[in-house]
Design a protein around this nucleic acid. Structure first.
Lengths: 148, 148
DNA sequence: ATAAAACATAGTAGTTTGCTATGAAATGGG
DNA sequence: CCCATTTCATAGCAAACTACTATGTTTTAT
């Protein structure tokens, strides 16, 4: 299914920050922007949402930047996407016009709610630490390729 | 998550048709449109997609109409939504610009593909027959309410 | 003071969504 | 044969959304 640029950028940014989480240093938007090849101005809007969701903390002014608010193990893909993806999680309540309430009710409980729960479960299972590990493994595999 | 009007209308229409599946009669768009309170002209576009996906068959001309191509038990919510919802199933391939391929790769396999699989599994578990049964039960519950 | 950063708000081109409009093609009933 | 009824096809359109860019204003270490 379609994940918007905001969601993809947010996830990639958080994983990127997690790669340096151990150092405790703050990271500037411009460095993330350059690392990922994403417009810095656009990232500002993404981080505004990440901050509102309390996934990152910030320090203003020179030498300032962002930090993860929690350890990568304590942040899930659900946390990140829920913070920035509106269409993925808005329960729009509307199904079908007021007629045929029994069909509407059946669709809501068997399809829409089941779907939401399934999505949440899948995303909550994936932590930033998991993504970090997979990324490191990918990098290692690539290194071996060149070594051979 | 957000399901578009097309998806909701398609699902409701198919369930509505399933309510009369046993009779073997064809059903006109205008009757579905009136039953559900949905614009007939818009439904035409929905049914064009349902037909392309071979979920319904049609008979043109006077006394014509639509029929389910298979029994309600053999049609899943996945079939219906996949037929009409584009954004729900298009694998857009794009994640993040070419930089940081290891993060991109991790996101794809751990988040996007896992999500797609989870969505498919949830939707394939729900047949039109299930929806029909839930709708009938809802109607019965309502009837009891009035009886008391 | 000044440069470097976060933060805030507004604008904008392109796409998607949810619908309407119009008409063509097919087909059974009179 | 004619005609009402239906499916089928295409085009248009306003509103919303998406993915950005532009232009600042704070804040703060040096």
């Amino acid at each position: 299914m379609r994940i918007s640029a905001k969601g993809r950028y947010a996830l990639a940014s958080v994983v990127s920050m997690a790669q340096q989480y151990a150092t405790g240093e703050s990271i500037t938007l411009i460095s993330i922007s350059e690392r990922l090849g994403i417009s810095k101005i656009y990232l500002e809007q993404v981080f505004s949402l990440l901050k509102r969701a309390e996934l990152v903390t910030s320090v203003k002014g020179s030498q300032g930047g962002y930090q993860l608010a929690r350890a990568p193990k304590q942040i899930t893909a659900l946390d990140v996407l829920a913070a920035v993806e509106t269409s993925l999680f808005d329960r729009s309540e509307e199904t079908v016009p007021e007629k045929a309430p029994e069909i509407e009710s059946a669709m809501r409980s068997l399809v829409f709610e089941a779907l939401d729960q399934s999505v949440s479960e899948a995303l909550i299972r994936c932590t930033i630490e998991d993504l970090l590990a997979a990324a490191e493994q990918h990098k290692a595999a690539h290194a071996v390729m060149f070594y051979i």
